[in-house]
Write a protein that binds this DNA or RNA. Structure first.
Lengths: 227, 227
DNA sequence: TGCTAAATCAAACGTTTGTTTTAATTAATT
DNA sequence: AATTAATTAAAACAAACGTTTGATTTAGCA
């Protein structure tokens, strides 16, 4: 009745040529990210996608299931994309000196911030995730296991290499979260932080400035650790 | 037709003795915090509060207006409560040495973390705010101006006293946000961070441990600043 | 007590919601 | 070309939604 039939093919910008299922997933990603699950109606989705209302239940069984499949689809899409990030994670394994690890952390933070704010797609992706954090759905477990945990582990490795005293320390995750939280906060609380900083948008210059601050702040904190 | 009539009196635990309007505000705070505006129905509110469905429109004009009044009410309630926090903010003005300022920052962080997680009321309060951040309503501006800005300013003053090089620096807000973000992240992303830390709840011990880490991490970062 | 305005109530309003049904159409298979 | 399966389309479904109505009760005041 649903699932595991065609799978969404390569997404072009020509929305008209996508399959009905792919159209729905594309539009659903946008709507769910912007307005959330409860505030998005199937009729809105169908109208925007240019498909019949019944298509949602035909292909996905229910609105809730469409939401879950949208999350799955979005996350595995982003896992495949952002090649620079995957590169960086690969390079982590080859790092030998604390200085190189520090440099990698700086790049990690800058890349993370750019991903969070630069492209529409990654911004939607992050927005879907922050909604999951507020109102967890059954998909959250999968997301944590497959998506967040690996990256948390990667950054933790970098930190442990930059500050060997933290390797095998139970406090290591605290340090990782301290860095990640600073980046994510500007995404979660974007309207407020912009007001506090007297800025009106997340310009590339502001992103760089923030990334540099977070890097400096965090690397200084790591120099003398508290175990 | 609405507003500015009785005002919510002292909230006792005896819900039966509250006025209809106060009952609605009390229940609305709980529901809006837990499920959000869109997923909360007027019928649920009325049933839980033990009042008639028409009471919402009678006293507040609309569901949206009830939401706005709930936010207003909740925030000004919390402004009056948490006396320790207000005390701390008062003491800030009397601080003279960087060492005393550092100590005050440690207390600020610990108090902030306790407020975020300890009592049900402040937890709801924080939850309402994080929902506002994701989906801003007309109330967000008021909240920022009246609640967030003063506290942001207070912590900024503390930081500037702990590290005089940051006084009058345009980077000061970055440092303030770095501290606040670490605290708030554990609230925004609670389910995920608990998983990452292999904890199953925010126990008082864990709160203390996290507060100490954030304090140490941040004070180390402030020692050598990047202007 | 009698009167008036505020407060509460049950009931129904017209929409919108997610979902289902049934028929028409397209694509695939023999 | 004929038949079957997959897809799309229009329409209707019951349930839930926010809101309104009009009658009834309660409370304050003359």
């Amino acid at each position: 009745m649903s699932a595991t039939k065609p799978l969404v093919k390569d997404e072009t910008d020509k929305v008209e040529e996508l399959s009905t299922k792919a159209k729905l997933l594309t539009v659903a990603e946008k709507f769910f990210a912007e307005k959330g699950l409860a505030s998005t109606s199937i009729r809105d989705l169908a109208r925007e996608a240019g498909v019949n209302i019944a298509a949602v239940n035909y292909y996905f069984g229910s609105k809730e299931n469409l939401y879950l499949e949208t999350l799955r689809n979005t996350f595995q899409k982003t896992a495949g994309s952002s090649p620079k990030f995957n590169e960086l994670l690969e390079q982590t394994k080859a790092i030998r000196t604390p200085e190189a690890a520090q440099q990698a952390i700086i790049e990690y933070i800058h890349l993370f911030m750019k991903i969070l704010f630069t492209s529409d797609e990654t911004r939607r992706h992050a927005r879907l995730m922050s909604r999951e954090m507020s109102d967890p759905s059954p998909a959250l477990n999968v997301i944590v296991q497959e998506f967040i945990l690996p990256k948390h582990k990667a950054l933790s490795d970098l930190i442990a290499q930059a500050q060997p005293a933290l390797a095998n320390s139970p406090s290591l995750s605290f340090y990782t979260l301290s860095i990640v939280s600073q980046c994510l906060h500007y995404h979660f609380a974007l309207p407020i932080t912009l007001k506090l900083l007297n800025e009106k948008e997340m310009s590339p210059e502001l992103i760089s400035k923030l990334a540099k601050h977070i890097s400096y702040f965090s690397l200084e904190a790591i120099k003398n650790v508290n175990l």
